[in-house]
């Protein structure tokens, strides 16, 4: 479109341009092109929020919501049983021991279920962790509603401490028909250096063992 527009300008210019002493208006063209360049640089950064919104709407990157859902008693779909596996891993350089106490649940959509994860900090320093969830296949992530999860906030543990962290969730009965089995994985990251809060803040959701 821009091409045609400038072309008509140019043909007008070219008509009364017997020598190159009369130069066509380059500044205007350059201005438009520089605008495109700046806009595309901005677009590169705009892709970050766009990506996040897109993934939140479609759930295709397997991230579950990071805020608590409110459980209103809904009809439990007794005709379907969904198997959910729980997997844990720690990021490179993260020394914690991290295990799923409940390895697997088989639940009906709409049914509230509580599972637990065990952590221990064997390192000689205090560490703040952050758990990042990932659901596979990713489409199921939209239908996992957590009413309570340790992953909603940071998880601080002093050196040598251990804890059991609960997670309460239910599966939306709207879960697509073809998904009967999915995996929920948590990865623990060491974020001690990123956050300012002191490690001795009590971990609210932890019950001692």
């Amino acid at each position: 479109m821009a091409v045609e527009e400038t072309n008509s300008d140019n043909q007008k210019d070219a008509g009364d341009m017997p020598t190159n002493t009369q130069r066509p208006n380059h500044a205007k063209t350059v201005g438009k092109l520089v605008f495109v360049v700046v806009a595309m640089f901005g677009f590169g950064f705009a892709l970050v929020p766009l990506y996040e919104v897109f993934c939140e709407l479609t759930g295709i990157n397997g991230k579950t919501s990071d805020t608590a859902a409110v459980y209103e008693p809904i009809e439990i779909d007794k005709t379907r049983t969904i198997t959910v596996d729980f997997i844990t891993r720690t990021n490179t350089g993260m020394p914690w021991e991290f295990k799923a106490v409940t390895k697997r649940v088989e639940i009906n959509p709409g049914e509230l279920s509580e599972v637990a994860f065990y952590v221990r900090n064997p390192a000689s320093r205090d560490i703040i962790a952050q758990a990042i969830p990932s659901v596979s296949p990713g489409q199921a992530a939209l239908y996992v509603n957590k009413t309570e999860c340790f992953c909603f906030r940071h998880q601080p543990l002093k050196s040598g401490e251990e804890a059991v962290m609960p997670m309460v969730f239910y599966i939306d009965p709207q879960l697509p028909e073809d998904i009967n089995y999915f995996t929920l994985q948590y990865t623990l990251y060491d974020i001690t250096e990123r956050v300012d809060e002191p490690v001795d803040v009590a971990m609210n959701s932890i019950q001692g063992r």
Binding site: V37, V38, M40, F41, F43, G44, F45, L47, V48, N91, Q130, I132, T187, Y189, D190, I191, R194
Partner: peptide
Amino acid sequence: MPVLAAAVTMVLTDKFFGTSFFDAAG
């Protein structure tokens, strides 16, 4: 090319200035 410039800039800030464009922990 501006999108490439944006991508390398994000890599630079992720690596040296503590941003988390590509870091799941953040």
